[in-house]
């Protein structure tokens, strides 16, 4: 059997809200090591990868590897029935065609149980090689979200240039052009307010703001976002999930014609 208990249903809610506009259906791959999920949007232009380590759960048991095919819109409907502080348990028997989702309020006075139908998905799984990226930035996720949202009003694409002093987001549109530069700041009192650049060489790539906006929906997952870039390969936009794992998004840079 498979059973995974999370102290806060809100974490699962945030994960599903972060990806459900991008991904319709996905397999949750469960093993002794934890839960992973890899899925592409319908046009296969972006990819998201979730990793939740088993030791990040309150309780975790997975007797044999399982792939649970889920419709994310339907999972979202069920998660809306959970209080943010509810304890959430996912459970399925071997060969079951449903996933049992349980919410327990902190004082145990309210217990909800749902059976979500599983779907058979013939999902393509891509091997993502370990890559030594030329430029990496860690910055506050709320700042990233705001920059992407603001630039989306001006244009369709955004250049991201990482240099030794920081990162510059540039945009061009019918009304003109603009840029927002965020300076490296490793001295900020709180770790989550720091902007840190690690680079071997400056990298500048251009991306579709439509997809970066989808990725920014993961902002509630944590205070930090990490961008990893190398020339001519997909950017990795990673939202670390404290003590549990991460949610990563991949998007290819725009190619100049």
């Amino acid at each position: 059997m498979f059973e995974a208990k999370l102290n806060e249903a809100s974490l699962l809610k945030k994960i599903v809200e972060a990806i459900r506009e991008l991904v319709t259906d996905a397999n949750l791959d469960c093993s002794e090591a934890g839960i992973t999920m890899q899925a592409m949007d319908s046009s296969h232009v972006s990819l998201c990868a979730l990793n939740l380590r088993s030791d990040g759960f309150d309780h975790y048991r997975c007797d044999r590897n399982l792939s649970l095919g889920l419709n994310l819109a339907n999972l979202s409907k069920i998660l809306k029935c959970a209080g943010n502080n509810d304890v959430c348990t996912l459970r399925t028997e071997d060969d079951a065609d449903t996933l049992t989702v349980t919410f327990e309020s902190p004082k145990q006075e309210r217990i909800s149980e749902f059976e979500l139908k599983l779907i058979a998905l013939d999902a393509e799984h891509l091997g993502i090689p370990d890559t030594n990226y030329k430029a990496q930035v860690r910055m506050p996720s709320a700042e990233f979200q705001r920059i992407i949202r603001d630039l989306s009003v001006i244009g369709d694409t955004c250049s991201i240039a990482v240099g030794k002093d920081g990162v510059r987001f540039g945009v061009e549109g019918d009304l003109g052009s603009g840029s927002i530069s965020v300076k490296q700041n490793t001295a900020a009192e709180k770790e989550e307010e720091r902007v840190e650049v690690h680079m071997e060489e400056p990298v500048e790539l251009t991306f579709a703001l439509r997809y970066l906006n989808f990725f920014a929906k993961a902002t509630p997952l944590g205070p930090i976002v990490a961008l990893s870039m190398s020339p001519d390969v997909p950017v990795v936009v990673e939202f670390p999930i404290e003590t549990v794992g991460y949610l990563r998004f991949y998007l290819a840079p725009k190619i100049d014609e």
């Binding site: 990819l47 891509l126 290819a252 190619i255 014609e257």
Partner: peptide, 14 residues
């Protein structure tokens, strides 16, 4: 503006 490359161009199916 350029085109958008699919992910399976970069990462191979396993």
């Amino acid at each position: 503006k350029g085109g958008q490359t699919r992910m399976d161009t970069f990462f191979k199916s396993t």
